Simulated assay, not measured.
Amino acid sequence: MISFNYENDFKLPNETQISKWISSVIVTENCKEEEINYVFCDDDYLHKLNVDFLDHDTLTDVISFDYSVGKTLHGDIFISTERVADNAKDFENTFEEELHRVLVHGVLHYCGYKDKTDEDAKLMREKENFYLNTLK
Rank of each mutant, 00 (worst) to 15 (best):
I18G: 05
V102R: 02
N8W: 03
K20E: 13
E34I: 06
S64Q: 14
K32F: 15
T94F: 00
V69K: 14
F53V: 11
I22D: 03
E98I: 07
E29A: 04
D66G: 07
S64C: 15
L132I: 07
Y67A: 13
V107T: 01
N87V: 04
D120R: 03
K127A: 03
T60D: 09
I36T: 08
D66E: 01
F130W: 03
E128L: 03
L59T: 04
D52Q: 12
T134I: 02
Y67Q: 12
S23I: 07
D66V: 09
K20L: 15
D115M: 08
F95S: 02
K116P: 03
N133G: 03
D86T: 11
I26H: 01
N14T: 06
V102H: 02
V102I: 10
H47G: 00
L99I: 07
T72F: 14
D76S: 13
H56P: 08
T58C: 12
K127I: 02
K11A: 11
G70C: 10
V102M: 03
D61H: 08
L49V: 02
N50I: 07
R83H: 12
T58V: 15
N50C: 09
D115L: 01
Y45E: 04
S3V: 10
N87I: 04
N5V: 10
V104W: 01
L49W: 13
V69C: 15
A85W: 01
M1T: 13
N93M: 09
H74K: 15
P13H: 10
D44L: 15
F53G: 05
R101Q: 09
Y110M: 14
D52M: 14
K32Y: 15
T94S: 10
K20D: 11
I36M: 00
D52S: 14
F91D: 11
Y6M: 12
L12I: 12
D90M: 09
K20G: 08
L123Y: 06
I77K: 04
S80M: 05
K89C: 06
E92K: 12
E126C: 08
E126I: 07
E96I: 04
N14C: 12
E7W: 09
E126K: 10
I26M: 11
E126N: 05
R125C: 06
D76L: 10
F91A: 09
K136Y: 00
D61Q: 12
E35H: 14
D44Q: 15
F78Y: 10
N30D: 10
D9Q: 09
D57W: 13
V104I: 13
I18V: 14
H100C: 04
Y6H: 07
N5M: 05
F40A: 08
I63K: 02
H47C: 13
L46F: 01
Y113G: 02
N50L: 12
W21D: 04
Q17H: 10
V102N: 00
S24R: 11
T28N: 09
R125P: 03
A88F: 06
K114H: 11
T60H: 05
E82G: 06
V84G: 05
F40K: 02
E98Y: 06
F53D: 06
